[in-house]
């Protein structure tokens, strides 16, 4: 897999940072890697930072949604953070409101909400 996505463990939170040039193959790889990481370690929450993404189309939106569902089955909540205004407007227009994911403005806020919900 290329370095189009980076995974970090911070205590019991898995941080994922996605780069703008990620392609379809990379994101499917990411789904796989992420599921394994969540299952292997005792991860309470997944925080996916998409602030670098100028585009989230229906394919990426759907994979992100599936990611959240997989994490939920493995007992972790998934936050998507840093979505750009243009991306949010475009996704709503496409009818993709990602109800299966929690959202936060940035990583700090997401981690705080994860702690509060415990």
């Amino acid at each position: 897999m290329s370095d189009a996505a980076a995974l970090f463990h911070v205590e019991d939170v898995l941080l994922v940072s996605i780069r703008d040039d990620i392609d379809d193959t990379d994101i499917l790889d990411l789904q796989e890697r992420l599921s394994e990481s969540v299952a292997r370690r005792d991860v309470q929450g997944v925080v996916i930072d998409i602030s670098d993404l100028e585009i989230v189309d229906t394919f990426v939106g759907r994979v992100l949604g599936q990611l959240a569902k997989i994490a939920k089955l493995l007992a972790a909540d998934t936050y998507i953070v840093g979505m750009r205004p243009a991306v949010a407007m475009t996704l709503v227009e496409l009818g993709m409101t990602l109800p299966e994911m929690r959202t936060a403005l940035n990583v700090t806020q997401a981690v705080r909400r994860l702690r509060e919900s415990r």
């Binding site: 585009i55 189309d57 205004p85």
Partner: peptide, 17 residues
């Protein structure tokens, strides 16, 4: 503008896929 770019490029992504 960013919003125009995101909208159009997203549409391009859909039709090329």
């Amino acid at each position: 503008r960013p919003i125009q770019k995101t909208r159009f490029v997203t549409a391009v992504s859909e039709i090329t896929r």
